[in-house]
Design a protein around this nucleic acid. Structure first.
Lengths: 208, 208
DNA sequence: TATAGAATACCGCATATGGGTGATTGAAGC
DNA sequence: GCTTCAATCACCCATATGCGGTATTCTATA
């Protein structure tokens, strides 16, 4: 058997924290010697003996779990963070993974699956509750069908590289006037009126 | 028990296809009455009786599995696609989820887990092999270290909404001059020189 | 306490940009 | 043969933008 997986818990509700601690510490292959009811204490004490995996709640008094991951991750880059929360809104999910959480479980996850998730994280995976995974995967899906012509997409691509009309015109061997005409049509089709919006839309809708 | 989950397989290797068909069709709660060794045939026949889940290989003769998902998804928007492939490069993974695959398994996944994944997909999840999930989650992680101040990030956010200096100034109750000063600093820090580039960088590096 | 950085504010200048309008050409489709 | 549309080019005008400066205030933090 491999080395025991060292787990820490940050969770403000005593009952849940104690229950989780008991479950983890009582399971062979896992240990949980550190638990906190807020991020501030964790920030002061956790880095002294970094765990392999941290189970992190989001709705905490003081520093939120998301902010906590960001700060703790700096001190313990080798530790994986697994969110364990009731929050299932997009903002919480995406902010969590953006700051470095490697997994995201909802609190209705049965204990056996939480243990499996901890092991999974430790092995290099990213366990997520089914609905969370779906949302993350869906976020990649292209919302196709913007009726931009080939040429317009080409120009949009140049725009995204920060090139101005003149440069684009030179690269495409057309006049600046033409580039501007294309831009006007692109703006109309994308329903925007500035370069900034066009770039945003181009990236978010994966046109480019 | 719920309705049987109807599964279809698209996989060019006969042995694997037959084996998978047998495993799925032989498992209670699952049926597999349709299997193809290429996307072309699937495109002609599958939509007549859309399955719940399609297990899709990527490396196929003719139309690739990724292109196949894109085309089939148009015809059968209610069907979920689960990639089952040896390809574990970033391009395959991200292209798959971008065209609409809802799960991604590597071929070394044991049959029991494949069955579980099919069920998971059908329930609204997005099963992924551990290393795949990690890669997708990691793709969100902000490569921090853009030392933008809070205020600068706030201004960048407004920029991404297509607002110009004047509008941003009004919204933040500061003068246009100040907004422009902030922009200068933002450009310096991001090493860009236009709004378009700034927006691109802001989105790609998830600063906003 | 000294220093750095953040946020604020201002000036001037050359150029880029967005809006409006209009025209020609060639290929695709009816 | 006619229509439509993408692609090309053109002009006018008001404003926005990027770049070069300079300066004050406040707050961390070394």
């Amino acid at each position: 058997m491999q080395k025991e997986i060292k787990v820490a818990i940050i969770e403000d509700e005593h009952e849940i924290r104690q229950l989780m601690t008991l479950i983890i510490d009582g399971s062979p292959g896992y240990s949980c010697k550190q638990s906190f009811d807020n991020c501030e204490d964790a920030l002061l004490n956790l880095a002294a003996d970094p765990p392999d995996v941290v189970l992190m709640d989001i709705d905490l008094p003081g520093i939120s779990g998301i902010e906590g991951v960001r700060k703790l991750k700096e001190k313990m880059p080798g530790t994986d963070f697994l969110m364990l929360t009731v929050q299932d809104d997009d903002e919480s999910i995406f902010n969590s993974v953006c700051v470095g959480a490697t997994g995201y479980l909802l609190k209705d996850t049965p204990p056996a699956e939480i243990l499996k998730a901890v092991e999974d994280v430790n092995k290099g995976g990213s366990p997520m509750s089914a609905s969370i995974a779906r949302r993350i995967v869906s976020s990649f899906k292209a919302e196709n069908s913007t009726s931009l012509s080939e040429r317009e997409i080409e120009i949009l691509r140049h725009l995204c590289n920060g090139e101005n009309y003149k440069v684009i015109a030179e690269k495409l061997h057309i006049s600046g006037h033409t580039v501007r005409s294309h831009f006007k049509n692109i703006y109309k089709k994308l329903q925007v009126s500035t370069k900034a919006e066009a770039v945003k839309k181009a990236i978010n809708e994966r046109i480019i």
